[in-house]
Design a protein around this nucleic acid. Sequence first.
DNA 1: CGCAATGTTGAACAAGGTCAACTGTGGTGG
DNA 2: CCACCACAGTTGACCTTGTTCAACATTGCG
Lengths: 200, 200
Amino acid sequence: MLEDRLLIIKKESCFFYEGDELKGIFFIYKGKVKVHKKWGEDKELIVRFAGEGDIVGHRGLGKQNIYPVSATTLEATSACFIDLNLFETSLKVNYDLMHKLLMFYAEELQDSEKNMRNLAHMPVKGRVAYSLLNLKAKFGVTKEGYINISLSRQDLASFAGTTYETTFRVLSELSNEGLISFEGKEIVILNDKNLAKVFD
Amino acid sequence: MLEDRLLIIKKESCFFYEGDELKGIFFIYKGKVKVHKKWGEDKELIVRFAGEGDIVGHRGLGKQNIYPVSATTLEATSACFIDLNLFETSLKVNYDLMHKLLMFYAEELQDSEKNMRNLAHMPVKGRVAYSLLNLKAKFGVTKEGYINISLSRQDLASFAGTTYETTFRVLSELSNEGLISFEGKEIVILNDKNLAKVFD
DNA sequence: CGCAATGTTGAACAAGGTCAACTGTGGTGG
DNA sequence: CCACCACAGTTGACCTTGTTCAACATTGCG
């Protein structure tokens, strides 16, 4: 029963698009996903990342049943698709689930608004630093100390709300200052405290 | 019983501050309120406006019981304060309330993320235009056609995520283009459709 | 070996923020 | 009644930030 809703999604594939009709939500068993929003043809903003145990697609709930964002896997991902009806029914039946979801939304909203303020007022360097610390907090580090998510520069840029090139320069800067170090996509934060001082 | 929780708040006063301990939420009977977040000493971003029938302070729900935003009246306002315990209890008892709240959060989250993307990628002129249309949609217009909220330039700037002076220039520009007209704080949108074309 | 994709850097440019001056307007006291 | 001041409204000039574009380097892979 459950099995026929279990999806295996390969790396770098978009499993729902901004504007699509809302069919249901996804529960991530394994893998990592970016949730993003387009602007024009070639610009996007990554709104959030989701990993193991997170849900994706819930943002579509509300008046118009349309996904307001797209979701794309960053690595091979397995997820459970939960039909909208089933989900709504579960909510009706399970008070606790609904309450958890409510709290989850509340947290997300706080996050989102902090990000808004950052985009409006924080300079790029701060935003990149903030993004890195965010990623570390969410995904942790590997045993070698690298942030446990392998992200293209472009994705990092889209997350920080800036361009590829600028992200690049900022990253070298931070590296020169001894706050981080990296080889390709693998990034280590050497000094959390001082990295946090870049903003704030 | 209800009366002792009814508050009359005079114009331009902040009734809770970002960082305050969360005591409860406010239900606005009458008046208008801005919900804002500080950056540094002198910069702020207005995250949302609330009017009659809206609730304020719910953003504090979540892990740490702290208001993540401040709330300040724009006009004389009457509001009902609902103690956090009472509110939580009501949620437990009233399935429908909880569901409505959930949907409300979902909408807010969508809004917030649209705003994030706009801040990241939309130029200032577009953001101001977007803000004006937003305000019109939320508060409607007076019989003379003015947007039914009287906002200082500074507040409009903080809502659009820009500076006082820039807002000013953009407003004159829009006025020259025949899209809006204004006398002091009172603004009319002359051409919704073309104003929307400024962004998008 | 060569080509494509991605990484790296420099330079020019544009948007918007900052600062400061100027204008008008409405008190306030002589 | 007018001179003066305080203060928001208004505008100009400049400067910083970050984007854009384009060149060049490096890597990986057929």
